[in-house]
Design a protein around this nucleic acid. Structure first.
Lengths: 337, 337
DNA sequence: AAAACCATTGCAACTATTTGCAAAACAGGT
DNA sequence: ACCTGTTTTGCAAATAGTTGCAATGGTTTT
C-alpha cells in the first residue's frame, strides 16, 4: 500500500530510527534531515497512526461530547473546535448524548479508548459525577465549571445584566426569567446574573422550562402570562422562539405587548419574526478555545511525565446583547393571562 | 493500565493465540472458550484498538462528511448514522466541509487514513471527481447518486410531484421553483420531479439560489416576485424560510398572496409563522440506512478478499408532503413585483 | 599521541494483537 | 497397540513505528 518508515530509510540510505528522529525533530544532522524529509516527501510517506499509537500509547485524536446535535448552539461550538483541530493534525470525534446522563457516561467511557482528551460541552450530571469522569483522562469543559476541571465559558452573568439594563431602560419593571434544565450549570450562572435586577428596580420571576427546546418554550409561555411580567428573558434562543410562537398564536404581540430576550444568538434568532433580541455568545470561539486549551494540556502531559496538579483554569469569553426586534418599550398594562 | 491479551492468557492458563481465537470466534474447544470469556470478563479486558488495527489494517471506525453542520438537515442525518453505528462498535468521525469542494477533497484524504469506510452526504463536485474519490476506499453516498457508487436518497421527484398536485388542487397555475446550488445532485433529481407539471397544467419557472441557505432565500424572493408566480417550491427549508422572511417584510402575505413549499422538513419548518408546508424526507433514516449499507459493504470486503465489482445499489426512501400553514388557495392575481 | 568529549547514527527491544504452520492431543477403526 | 484423521493448541513471525543504549567517527584537549 503506502510507504512505510522502512521504505523511506532504505531509499535514503539510513536506518529507520534516523528517519523517525528526522521527521519528529530528534537530534539529526541537518543534511541527513533534509535528505530524509525530501525522500519522505517524494515517496508520499504518511506515518501509520496505529503503529505510532501502539508504541506511544497516544491516539492522536480528540473527543467532543454535546447534549444534542440538533441544537444549533452546539453545532457552532463544534465548528470552532474543528477549525482548531484542523490545524493540529488531531482529528476530532463528535458524539451526541441525546441529553441523557446515562448515555453521557457510556459515551465518555467509549471515547476515552479512542482519544487522548475529551471536551465536554454543557454536560449534565452532578459536580461529583463530572469530576470523577474528568479524572479518567484529560478533560476540558465548555459552558460548565466544576472545581478541578479546566473550562471555557461565556460570561452569562454579564449578558443577563446587559439584558436587564436594556429592559429597565425600556421601562419594564417585572421580568420573567425562563430557567434551563435543572442540573445544567449554565443555568446556575445565568441565574446569578439576575442579582443585578434589584439595583435596577426590576422584579424578576423565575419560571421553569423542562428542556432547552422549542417545545418547552411553547409550554413556558402560558406560565409566564400568569405572572404579570411585561418582558421575558429565556435560557436560550430555542426556548425564546417557542415562547414567541405561542405568544403570537395567542394574539399577544411581540414586542408591543411583551418583550422577549433570548440567549446564544443562534442563526434562527435572526430568521424569525420579529427578529430576536438575544445575548450573543461567541460559540465558535468557545469551541476553538476549549480545543486549544485541551491541546495545551496534552502538551504539558507529554512534557512533564505525570503532572496531575488539579488545573482550575476557567476562561471567560465576553457576551454581548444584540438588540433586534423582539424588545420594545413596556406596555402600560401587562398582557392579560 | 488495562489488561492485555497476555494477562488474560496467563490467568486462564492458555496461550495468547488461544485467547484471541476464543474471543473472535476461531476454532476453540467450547470449554476453553467459556473459560477464556469468563476470565476476560473478570479482568475487564478490552482489546487494544491500535494493535488490532496495526495487524489487520482495519481501523474499526467510519467517517461521515457533511457540507455544513449548521444545516439542521445534516444533523438529523448524522443522528441516524450515529444511532446505527452505536450498535456496531464502530465509532464514527464526523466532518464538515464548509461547502467547499477543495475542503471536501482534503477531508476525504485525511479521513481515509482513520477509517474503514466513508459516508459522503450531499457531496459537491462532478461525477468523475466523486467516482475517483469513491474508488480510494469503501464509500456510500447520501442524497447523491454517481454510477458505480452505492447510495441512499429520498425520493425527491415523488415529493415534488406531490407538491405540484397539492398546489394545482389549490388553483395555482404558475409555480416558481427555487433551485439549489449547481453541482448538487439532489438539485437535478428535484428538478426532474417538475416534469409532472405539464400534465397538471402548471407552468414552472426556475429561479436560481446561490446556496442552500436562509440568505440565498432572502435574495431569491425578490426574483420570484418578478415572475408572476403565485406559489413557490424551494430547494430546501432554509431557502423557503429566507423567502418567507423577505415576503413578510415586503408586505406580501403567506399564504393569502403567495403559497410556499419547502423541502426536508427541518425542525425550523414548524417553528416559523406560518408553519411551513414542506416535503418531508426521512433524514434520520437516510443516515441510518447509509451506515447500514456501508457496514454491509465492509463485511463483504472482509469475506471475499478483493471483490471490486462495481456496486450500483441505490436505495430510495419515500418522501411525503406535509401540509401546514404556508400554502393556500391561489389569489386571483399574482402579487405585484 | 592519547584521552576525552561531542554529535550523530544504528541496533535491538518493545508495544498488543492476529495468523500460518506445525505440533500435540484425542478419538475411532483396525 | 498402532495408524489415521480430526480437532485443538502453541509457537513464532509479522504489523510500523519509537526509544534507550551503545557504537561510531570526528574534533578538541591534555
Amino acid at each position: 500500500m503506502s510507504a512505510t518508515i522502512n521504505d523511506v530509510a532504505r531509499v535514503a540510505g539510513v536506518s529507520p530510527s534516523t528517519v523517525s528522529r528526522a521527521l519528529s525533530g530528534g537530534p539529526v544532522n541537518a543534511a541527513t534531515r533534509d535528505l530524509v524529509r525530501r525522500t519522505a516527501e517524494t515517496l508520499g510517506y504518511q506515518p501509520n497512526r496505529a503503529a505510532r499509537e501502539l508504541i506511544t500509547g497516544r491516539t492522536g485524536a480528540l473527543g467532543l461530547l454535546v447534549p444534542d446535535l440538533g441544537n444549533p448552539y452546539f453545532t457552532e461550538v463544534i465548528k470552532g473546535a474543528s477549525s482548531r483541530s484542523r490545524t493540529s493534525s488531531y482529528p476530532i470525534f463528535v458524539s451526541d448524548t441525546d441529553e441523557h446522563v446515562a448515555r453521557e457516561h457510556e459515551t465518555i467511557a467509549s471515547l476515552r479508548h479512542n482519544t487522548d482528551g475529551l471536551i465536554l460541552c454543557s454536560p449534565r450530571g452532578t459536580d461529583e459525577e463530572l469530576l470523577a469522569l474528568a479524572q479518567t483522562g484529560p478533560t476540558v469543559m465548555v459552558s460548565r465549571h466544576v472545581p478541578g476541571v479546566p473550562s471555557v465559558m461565556g460570561d452569562a452573568a454579564a449578558g443577563i445584566e446587559q439584558a436587564l439594563q436594556h429592559l429597565g431602560a425600556l421601562g419594564h419593571r417585572k421580568v420573567a426569567y425562563i430557567n434551563g434544565p435543572a442540573g445544567s450549570y449554565s443555568e446556575g450562572r445565568r441565574s446569578a446574573g439576575l442579582a443585578a435586577a434589584q439595583a435596577l428596580g426590576i422584579e424578576v420571576v423565575e419560571v421553569p422550562a423542562a428542556a432547552p427546546t422549542f417545545d418547552a418554550g411553547v409550554l413556558a409561555a402560558d406560565l409566564v402570562l400568569t405572572t404579570g411580567a411585561t418582558a421575558i428573558i429565556a435560557f436560550n434562543d430555542l426556548i425564546a422562539i417557542g415562547v414567541l410562537n405561542r405568544l403570537t398564536s395567542r394574539g399577544i404581540r411581540v414586542p408591543e405587548d411583551m418583550s422577549l430576550v433570548g440567549h446564544d444568538d443562534i442563526p434562527m434568532a435572526s430568521m424569525c419574526t420579529p427578529n430576536l433580541t438575544t445575548i450573543a455568545v461567541q460559540k465558535e470561539r468557545l469551541g476553538f478555545t476549549a480545543t486549544d486549551l485541551l491541546l495545551r494540556l496534552l502538551d504539558q502531559r507529554a512534557a512533564r511525565s505525570s503532572a496531575t496538579e488539579p488545573d482550575d483554569t476557567c476562561l471567560q469569553l465576553p457576551s454581548m446583547l444584540v438588540v433586534r426586534g423582539s424588545t420594545g418599550v413596556a406596555p402600560s398594562t401587562p398582557p392579560r393571562s
